[in-house]
Design a protein around this nucleic acid. Structure first.
Lengths: 361, 361
DNA sequence: TTGTATGCGTTATCAG
DNA sequence: CTGATAACGCATACAA
């Protein structure tokens, strides 16, 4: 009986106390410890008071199971991989935080992967995650510009859920959870048009997340409201504060000049407010601005930003549910994976205002 | 020779192609595959052209090493655990993104853990991370209010680095990387006093990150500048936008009313700007405001926020360096772990202004 | 009720 | 130069 105390190894020393240690201390076999500690509650050919003893010793020795060994045996890793489009985006930070919390509530940890962190083109993004053997992967934000990632993921052996991916888009390879962009745009536009606005511009970011859907919804709304689109009223810029600076100047030079702008994200909207201020354009008196997402700072702009609020908590909760769920959608409907769509809600603050009567026409 | 194709297992199916598969396909032993694929470049009793063949087959079969098996053997997990105080904090989101990128550059992945995600008090935070066998853990933000976490971590067998932890604090249990808060406060205060301000208030959050150091530095500055502190000029509120609303009203009721406020974070500063606007107090004409951190939105407030800029990239890079570094500081100087302090820099925008001459005295 | 043996995918130490 | 073989920590079928 050669009981080597593995904890006394000099090199590595990466496992403090193993089942073997507990077993040795308790004078039982390692398998006994395993059975007791796993204790599938109910009909296990359980033990008597050895149980208590083993448990006490395990606690005393601060035993912690080694997840690598478990995973090696095929157990779930309880790991959720999150590929985030851009963690610097003020919208995604809180979203990831919410995701981490929702995941932990189900016992999962979150592994992070900023989509920009492709230091090596040869290293497919998926390698980092699939390699880690995550039980599931959550895509946060549109990854359309990473076709290889998408391709690798769809042929990989992991569940994938995409968030804010553009839920209406046909041919989605994964289940998606998102927001009803059309309804959000409708709320915002209704709000503006009911205030007399008809010259409404749109500022979005090209091929980013739900941006495209929002622009489409904007155009559809105009059509349904009988408003003829003005040439140049749609601007596409990077989804940054600086981005909207580039968008505002051309809009202000247009004639007729827009009386309102629908921004496809709060980042853009906040940039617009700032740019307007710098250019001496009064918000909302000369220009109404509506944002999208309702990030925390939307409440603190001057003036406070009217924005379409995103039910983040619900969205990430639904995503985790799908990600860790037992149901394997791939077996049911490969062509059209499930989509979950939540309804956004307009939060009206002070960046929008009905236009003055003389401005009509 | 019972070569079971492990890839054909029905259950689990969590490992697509193993070394065994590659070995079988190449007609060599599995250990040979291991040697070839690991290929410590240089003096390995290497093979001839079997190497090429094995490599080709491995590539063809899309072989990916199983990190669990490697970790089980004592190899580093290449995992960095990040315990974040609050991912919803607009400062930490980008910081984590930068951390993920810096880590990936060294081949590490980041595991996330929002410090608020303690669904179960019995479940120590550290369990989640240490259990995962991270090679190192990065604490992002002050965790003083989690004594158990600190204690578990310091006796655990992982390297720990603390970021924005309050670098000057004595008795730090871990190496820290942070910013010279005293220098930052000095920059900000110099800027204000050189504009004639002497009635300068301070708004911070109690026991949060470097907040305490900033308040101390503020008080020291006043003393060294011969400015007598005014009762009620120091306010402690939650580090949120709403928080600063609670701070502003009492300050405005004071007499003499402060002409400037130093906020210990941009979140607070942005909240102050908004609150001032709501109360009809003009920034910077009636009230100058300086923030701390220079988050992206600081450039987009109205007026633009003067703020003390944090060299985030440098900080996270240094943290990763320490976290993955070969040097084990614990063996050298247990009592005073290394601290890395970077210099912040004041970014002057439009939320500060020299006070009008008649306001003197 | 408990102990023994086996294998998960790797790496490392042996022989050949 | 290469092929067996033994761990790593855990779970489980099987034997006692």
């Amino acid at each position: 009986m050669t009981v080597r105390r593995s904890s006394s190894r000099v090199t590595g020393e990466h496992q403090l106390v193993t089942m073997k240690d507990v077993a040795a201390a308790a004078g039982v076999a390692q398998s006994t410890v395993s059975r007791i500690l796993n204790d599938a509650p109910g009909r296990i050919p359980v033990s008597d008071k050895t149980r208590e003893r083993v448990r006490a010793i395990a606690r005393e020795l601060q035993y912690r199971p080694n997840p690598n060994a478990r995973a090696l045996r095929g157990a779930p890793t309880m790991l959720l991989g999150a590929v985030v489009r851009d963690l610097a985006d003020p919208f995604f930070g809180p979203a990831i935080g919410a995701l981490a919390i929702a995941a932990k509530e189900r016992g999962y940890s979150v592994m992070l992967c900023d989509a920009r962190a492709k230091t090596n083109e040869a290293l497919a993004l998926t390698a980092v995650l699939e390699e880690r053997q995550c039980d599931a992967i959550v895509l946060v934000g549109d990854m359309r510009d990473e076709p290889r990632l998408i391709e690798d993921l769809r042929r990989a052996n992991v569940r994938v859920v995409a968030l804010w991916y553009g839920s209406q888009r046909p041919g989605r390879p994964f289940p998606t959870v998102g927001v009803d962009n059309r309804a959000g745009v409708r709320c915002a536009m209704d709000h503006l048009t009911s205030g007399g606005h008809r010259r409404i511009a749109f500022v979005g970011a090209a091929s980013f997340g739900d941006m495209e859907e929002r622009r489409t919804a904007y155009e559809e709304y105009l059509a349904s409201a009988g408003i003829v689109p003005v040439n140049g009223y749609v601007r596409h810029v990077p989804n940054t504060i600086r981005g909207s600076e580039f968008a505002l100047s051309p809009l202000l030079r247009l004639s007729p000049r827009p009386t309102a702008i629908l921004a496809a994200s709060d980042t853009l909207a906040i940039g617009l407010i700032h740019a307007a201020s710098v250019r001496g354009v009064a918000v909302p008196d000369q220009l109404s601005i509506v944002g999208f997402d309702d990030i925390p700072f939307a409440a603190a702009t001057v003036p406070g930003l009217t924005s379409v609020k995103m039910p983040i908590a619900k969205i990430v909760a639904a995503a985790v549910e799908i990600a860790v769920g037992e149901v394997d959608w791939r077996s049911s409907d490969v062509e059209d994976p499930p989509r979950v769509v939540f309804q956004p809600k307009l939060i009206v603050r002070d960046s929008t205002k009905a236009i003055a009567p003389e401005a009509y026409g």
